[in-house]
Amino acid sequence: MPAPLNAFKAALQAGQPQVGCWIGMADTYAAEIAATSQFDWLLVDGEHAPNDLRSILEQVRVIEGSGSQPVARLPIGETWMIKQYLDAGVQNILVPMVESGDQARDLVRAVRYPPYGVRGVGSALARASRFAAIPDYLKTADKQICLLVQVENRAGLEALDDILASDVDGVFLGPSDLAADMGHIGDASHTEVVEAVLDAITRVVAAGKFAGILTLDPAMQRKCLDLGATFLATNIDVTLFAQAVRRAADEALALLPDQSVSGVAKTEAASKYLQQLCKHWSHKAQVAFDDTHGSVEFPGGSRLTLVAGETSLSLTAQTGPRGDLTRWQEVIEAHLVRFAFREDFSIDWVD
């Protein structure tokens, strides 16, 4: 009886593109929900998510019971850690920050038993062998392990050909870290970054290895698939949850009325102050104004309309239902008082 067939690796070997999702909630229940989707693979993240081997194993278990295939990203490519993940039954592992061919070859040895590698023999204790219920596990395990390495900085790109010359199964490109290393932190869509990633994918495919990437950009996803990428993550559970719950909150708050208060300030320089205030906030907010009318809208929902007459400035201040209207009034008045320092200026607010 051989080691269990690695369906994820078999699909990649058959040239069938596999679409996946990043799982970073570090929670078995959330992973089980994700496993009810139709993603081909789900990656449980041990590098940036608050996971350890036990929590990753629990998530891998629930994913194994679904139609998706589990992949686990280690926090670092240490031999002892790889051994533990493999013994826990994780057949697909992703190792971050691989920067040289020597490092890649060390990782290959770490996932193989002697004489081809250095993986420790402890299968009798291991979930991977069904606790010694698979008699041929030691002789058949190596072929079912899928080792994916992450190239995500300039050093890794420079060493890519040497990495590809090793026996790693695939190379995963990391645009976010690469963008930071190239001087474009937070901008993975920068032309220089995109060109480097697409060139690397082309080289990986040409070398006969599996090429993969995580990108939320549909246009980039299409380009990578067209170049031959075979394992593509298109979303992140944390991002999906955060967007959905924020949208739900916005929709719920939209059911409630905005807060509003009006005020009048006596002044013969109303038009001047209106224009000064609008110009002052024009670099922070959406602003429109002329000699007699002005409007200001900040991203957080604080809004202001102004009407200048010959002897008075009329104002209407608004916030969303949970905004701090009193603080917004104070901010408006403080700015206008500063502009009108030559006169005794005050706003008579009326609810």
Results as ranks from 00 to 15, higher is better:
4 P>Y: 08
9 K>S: 01
13 Q>A: 06
18 Q>S: 13
20 G>R: 04
36 T>Q: 15
37 S>L: 13
40 D>N: 15
41 W>K: 04
58 E>S: 13
60 V>L: 00
63 I>M: 05
71 V>F: 02
77 G>H: 02
81 M>K: 11
83 K>Q: 13
90 V>E: 02
90 V>I: 15
91 Q>I: 03
97 M>C: 10
99 E>T: 13
99 E>M: 07
99 E>C: 09
110 A>Q: 06
122 G>R: 08
124 A>M: 14
124 A>T: 15
125 L>P: 00
126 A>V: 08
126 A>N: 10
127 R>E: 08
131 F>N: 12
136 D>Q: 09
139 K>G: 04
142 D>Q: 05
147 L>W: 07
148 L>E: 01
153 N>L: 10
154 R>A: 13
154 R>S: 14
159 A>S: 13
163 I>R: 01
166 S>G: 12
166 S>A: 14
167 D>G: 00
172 F>P: 01
179 A>D: 01
186 G>C: 09
186 G>Y: 09
187 D>C: 10
188 A>C: 03
190 H>L: 05
191 T>E: 15
192 E>N: 08
197 V>P: 02
201 I>M: 03
204 V>Y: 11
206 A>H: 09
207 A>D: 10
213 I>V: 15
214 L>H: 14
215 T>L: 07
218 P>W: 03
218 P>S: 08
233 A>F: 14
235 N>M: 06
236 I>Y: 04
240 L>W: 07
247 R>D: 14
261 V>F: 03
264 V>N: 03
265 A>G: 05
265 A>H: 00
267 T>M: 08
271 S>R: 04
275 Q>I: 06
278 C>G: 05
278 C>F: 04
280 H>G: 00
282 S>L: 02
282 S>R: 13
286 Q>K: 07
291 D>A: 14
292 T>G: 00
299 P>I: 11
301 G>V: 08
302 S>G: 13
302 S>C: 08
307 V>I: 09
307 V>P: 00
315 L>R: 02
316 T>I: 11
316 T>D: 09
325 L>F: 07
328 W>P: 00
328 W>M: 02
331 V>C: 00
334 A>W: 02
343 E>P: 07
343 E>M: 09
344 D>I: 07
344 D>Q: 15
350 V>H: 12
